[in-house]
Design a protein around this nucleic acid. Structure first.
Lengths: 210, 210, 210, 210
DNA sequence: GATGAATGAGATTTCATTCAT
DNA sequence: CATGAATGAAATCTCATTCAT
């Protein structure tokens, strides 16, 4: 059996194992068995537990980012409405995290599994946040907002949105009854952020002294 | 030295250890040493690693809920404005998580450390979410909204808000420069959710077909 | 059972194991079993295989040096004949290596088991060589030799003698029939080195052109 | 590529590997890679790690013995002075061990790598010791000594000399500064053993009671 | 009440070795 | 002739946990 195929099997098993038990508690024995290969082969191909976990993160990160970028367009598409692109991106995000819950679990949990892994996830988050920031800014401009203002103010909203999306994805995957569809989840968030954006553009702010 | 004091020392050490290394990687050896007691004593008092972790979760959960409840009022306080109570609660929440980062880290990470612990955290989340739902509903009613409507619609917003608050608390603790004050963090979130609530009351919804 | 006793048992077993199989091939499993304890206890007390081996080297080195120093006198003993002291030292050396063949094997083999261990042995060799140099020099002076000359020339002979003694000790232990007594072995070497010393004092040198 | 060449490459790589890391620590993976062939080929040609090591020992042993025999003459050469032959042999020995440090290291270390290998080395040592004994005996006769006496007494000196030569070869290879030339090393030893031989012939013995 | 002594079980990792092609 | 693919067995080391005192 060719190496490529075996490697994919191993990564599949590893993602499942790490998702279920976390990095520390997942055992190489179990992962190898799950993949249908012997442990030495896992080590031959993937070097160490740490490298295996990193490989999982990288693969899942690439798949997720690809899924989102695939529908938002990799670059600015002149004429396309940013709002629509954002909506598409969110739908793709929640669809992907719902379709590959283990993959998403690995990405989300990697955050709390020590330095080398947290960096990997931070990079992904930065990548996505940048994309969202761009789309929000262009949406604001579309809505008649001053360009300078948009760039300055919208970043905070983007951070909040990405954080909220992460939480929602976890929460949606955890549901066992009344599981929301990706579009419903996306709509919830869009609803939230879009009103936030509009208020922001208008300069409305909440304050305790109000 | 009385048992109570000893136990508190152990829990303190355990919370620190679990926060730093996670459940699996934290070692009973280190915890016992850190607590300044012998390992058998830890087992005598707290039975097992699992029980010890559970005890940590329970203690930190109680402390956090107490901190929030202490400023929102344990029950509905007729005449008090719900908006103000919500604001107070958020401030208390972020102040507490900032003051006890290890405790919060334990609570947050427990979520991904396997079944028995996730349940504990889920219970805490439910407790807080219920509180927030109540406050939001009363705030909606205060704003002239129909009571039935409020109860039905506001729950989703509460869930999102709690999730967002969790993310924000982690994010704030992770900062090393430009660390936001609890009030700033609370204002960010309040800003966000309050506009969402107002739009919701007005019946405004975002939809892809718009 | 007190720690000290256990540690000695472990070191005994380790010395036997390392002597028989060498550092790499000796297994911690076997050593623990031989010592009549569980592996974790070995690790608890001696930290690692490397540390265990180092501890063996140190103990055997100390015992050997002590055995030699005990009969040569730790310092210069005015009035004592250096020749006699040297003879006593050699006898003690061969008696010790014959009495503790495993210990001597460990010391001798450590030389070829990698850097950290070779250093340990080199230090021991230097210690003994220094002692021998001193005795030879004093013996030369006793024999009417110029002091300056003695110090300069005798060092090479001391090195050769120590090397020869090492080889002889290994060789004597390897014999299964006609095993020489320590005194016989010592006499062989003394015979050798003493004539060498006498010729050297007289300035006689062998050269190919003779 | 003919089998002979391939085998030589493998043995070269193996000798280098065993010399650097010892028998246990050297890995077949590394050796195969170093030899530029695949592992199965190594096993096809040399059957096992043990056989490979044995093959190394045999080859290096043959080369060393050949180098010495080549200058001492394979048999007794009537008319040639034994002293000169011994000198030539020592020079050849130290020149060879200096020229092929890895080969010598393998031979020397094989001694302490367990039964099957120690026997190989013992055989080589016996071979060389026999040669030296012969030369020493003839030299004694040349010097006017009784033939019977020579054969009986000279054997011990030969053993000591071979042991000393081994130590010196290792020591010379280990030097990084002031590396002695083979001739210098040979002269050191010759100096030593020749005086010993002369005294012996004269019947002079050292004794503790002197 | 408190601890020094001790371990069973299992973790990651490596290595010599062999097929099927 | 040559190799990519694969593994059984064993190595070092760690950890939660328990007695005897």
């Amino acid at each position: 059996m060719p190496r490529e195929v075996r490697e994919r099997q191993m990564l599949d098993a590893a993602v499942a194992g790490f998702a279920r038990h976390g990095y520390q508690a997942a055992s190489m024995d179990d992962i190898a068995e799950q993949a249908g290969v012997s442990k030495p082969l896992v080590y031959l191909y993937l070097k160490s537990k740490e490298d295996l976990f990193t490989a999982c993160i990288r693969r899942e990160r690439a798949a997720l980012v690809e899924a989102v970028r695939g529908v938002t367009g990799r670059d600015e598409v002149p004429g396309a409405r940013a709002e629509q692109q954002l909506w598409n991106g969110l739908c793709a995000f929640f669809a992907h995290t719902a379709a590959r819950p283990d993959g998403w679990s690995v990405l989300h949990r990697a955050d709390t599994q020590g330095e080398p892994f947290a960096r990997e996830v931070a990079a992904m988050r930065a990548e996505i946040t940048e994309l969202v920031t761009l789309l929000l800014a262009r949406a604001a401009v579309d809505a008649g907002c001053d360009e300078k203002f948009a760039e300055r103010e919208v970043s905070g909203l983007a951070h909040a949105m990405v954080g909220a999306a992460e939480s929602l994805a976890v929460w949606a995957n955890a549901r066992t009854e009344a599981v929301p569809s990706p579009k419903e989840t996306a709509a919830t968030l869009m609803n939230f952020c879009w009103t936030g954006l509009e208020q922001m553009i208008k300069g409305v702010r909440w304050s305790p002294h109000r």
